[in-house]
Design a protein around this nucleic acid. Structure first.
Lengths: 239, 239
RNA sequence: UGACACCAUUUCAG
DNA sequence: CTGAAATGGTGTCA
């Protein structure tokens, strides 16, 4: 629940294309309208951007990767390496996966992986780690985009570094979680000129959505390995 | 010889079991319905008595409602009472209905009902309650099948019992909903050796689909009563 | 108390 | 595929 309310509805194909602020209004434009194309947004600007250049979901199978960017600030810049990351877990904890897209000089690389029992937050962290592992000696600044405030704040607000300094204890003196992953992420981050950025999930950013696809596909895949870090946590609790 | 005019038609097995005062109505419930069972009466009380007596609906060896089961595990077992339940609401909240099939020793009984304003989840709960109300002192284990994870988890994961213990507060301290129905369902469940099972909806299980038919028909029926439990909830919110 | 994320099921309208 | 509502859960942090 607690989903951001959609207050703006862009009607691209319908009786009267445009932006509507009430679903009932929008619905009357598309209901029983063959081939209607419409989508809800939480911000008018997003609705307008989509309307100006609708992003259609990439057809599965043929993977000629040509994302369209609804907004200029979503487009990777050439003077930096752009990384998008996403993670998820079905039933949390449950089968989980991560997806990564790295854009360097217009070249797109994709990575993904999954585990048969893990958590959403571990997968969000894993995505970042895998991305940075793939970066061997970047000569350019790195911009990493994640929709996890857990990850982005953990780095940008210095939470993780503080926990490590205090023997992985949080300010409430209780142990921080996922320390195996935070430790590696901190170590990797130190090797790059990297900036972590938070992006809203499922808000029409094509690279974020591509990562989501990769993560979901990986999570659904059978025969995935065990997330030993997560299992380790359980064992400690069992003792 | 003036024949007593038949003014009441009891439909025991048909699309919408119940009592009808017009043959055209009754006919539409049984026409082209395999194994339909119906009978005309001159008094409503006679029709009701016939309808209430399950003996008439389960004569062994006759052309009774005998679904084909695509998979062996869908077939009711003889050593337990099998209950299928479904509920739904048109426009949620909106007009809603439930459908119930009880199988005991190869005898099929069906029940349904509806309300003019309710929710899908209330109807899923109502189906279970009505089913258990019809069970007077079961000597065998009872297996109840519902496609509502709200209902099945509410029982099997102990949610509902926890809510009741905490004065109908959920773990997030907010009030649980549909407490009138949960309370009765818990009380009824305690009287039986009952196991709740989740089945996927619209997945080819004939009894689940039969319940769906019953529920939809009941929801569509005009002149249904008010769901006072649901209205009560609205009033509380309005205060 | 707040935030972000992950998800499950059902129902309904196209 | 697009949209809506009704219900519930966990992972994590400040």
């Amino acid at each position: 629940m607690a989903k951001a309310k959609k207050k703006y509805y862009a009607v691209a194909v319908g009786r009267q294309p445009g932006i509507y602020e009430d679903w009932l209004d929008a619905e009357s434009q598309v209901k029983a309208f063959p081939g209607a194309k419409f989508k809800g947004f939480s911000k008018r600007s997003e609705a307008g951007a989509w309307l100006a250049d609708p992003v259609y979901h990439a057809a599965p199978g043929n993977r000629q990767y040509k994302p369209r960017y609804p907004r200029q600030d979503m487009k990777p810049k050439d003077d930096e390496i752009t990384i998008y990351t996403d993670g998820g877990s079905i039933n949390n904890p449950g089968p989980g996966g991560y997806g990564v897209v790295i854009v360097d000089n217009g070249a797109y690389r994709e990575f993904s992986g999954g585990y048969r029992l893990t958590t959403n937050n571990r997968m969000e962290l894993m995505g970042c780690i895998v991305a940075l592992r793939k970066l061997s000696g970047a000569d350019k600044p790195v911009a990493l985009y994640s929709d996890s405030s857990y990850v982005v704040n953990g780095i940008n607000k210095g939470w993780a570094r503080k926990w490590r300094q205090n023997g992985w204890l949080k300010s409430d003196k209780r142990p921080a979680l996922n320390t195996d992953l935070w430790d590696e992420l901190l170590t990797l981050s130190d090797k790059f000129n990297i900036r972590f950025n938070w992006v809203k999930g499922h808000a029409g950013n094509p690279l974020n959505e591509r990562c989501d696809e990769l993560a979901v596909a990986a999570a659904r895949r059978h025969g995935q390995p065990e997330d030993v870090g997560y299992s380790g946590k359980l064992q400690r609790e069992d003792i």
